[in-house]
Amino acid sequence: MSTKQHNVHTLANDEDADARVASFFSISAIMTVVMIVVWVLAPPPSVGVKEGQLAPDILAEAHYSGSWHDFRLYDYFNHSWEEGEPGQYIFLQFMDTDCPHCWDDALGMSDNYNNWGANGAVAFITVSVGMLNTDHSRAEVVAFQEKSDYEGCNHDNSNCASRGGDAHDWPYVDDLGLSAFRDYNPPGVPFHLLLSPDGTVVWNSAMHTDEFDPLHEPSQALQHHLTGGGA
């Protein structure tokens, strides 16, 4: 009760309150006009991993052609691409060299690459994350990629040379620090995304978890989007 009385007393005697409120409304009006102009002329893109959103950028180093190179995902995008035009899609895989499901996924990745990547229709990119609480190193990433002799893959229990599939002839991005992992926030690994040539997510594996979904498997999604069934 006494607090209420005090507040009423303060407001009633504060002759200056309206100048600050008037100022607030003036600034709010200016901000509203500015926001309308921004949204009309150049709205911020919807960045995220849901289908229809622009994929977040990835800045890191990637291993390919026998050495590590600077890597930027957006360098792969052709922003002027339009639906129906020819262009290179991007298949993004998040994996951990110590995750058993990723170990099994390596064979499927090889098959998909042979069908869609080797001919240049799709650029394959693997983001190797250090998600699990096991030993990780760049040497292990390279061994997993090249399928070379290294003890420590598959939860530190297998030799990397014994994984399924061929040596992977596409960039392996070093995300052992989990920078891209945090941006993409996958529900688990392996996690797959198919991006259209302009960087828009057209298929997100986490949105097709039902095994009866016709786009459940990466191979189905690739087939669907690259043969004109979707995109």
């Binding site: 500015v34 921004v38 002329l41 150049a42 709205p43 911020p44 960045v47 922003h79 302009d198």
Partner: peptide, 25 residues
């Protein structure tokens, strides 16, 4: 200050466009 606010908004618009390709601004 309002000139600075407008110029800042313009740089944000350029940033938004550059995320999706080139900028016309």
């Amino acid at each position: 200050e309002m000139g600075g606010l407008a110029a800042s908004a313009w740089t944000w618009m350029i940033h938004n466009q550059l995320l999706q390709g080139g900028s016309t601004l």
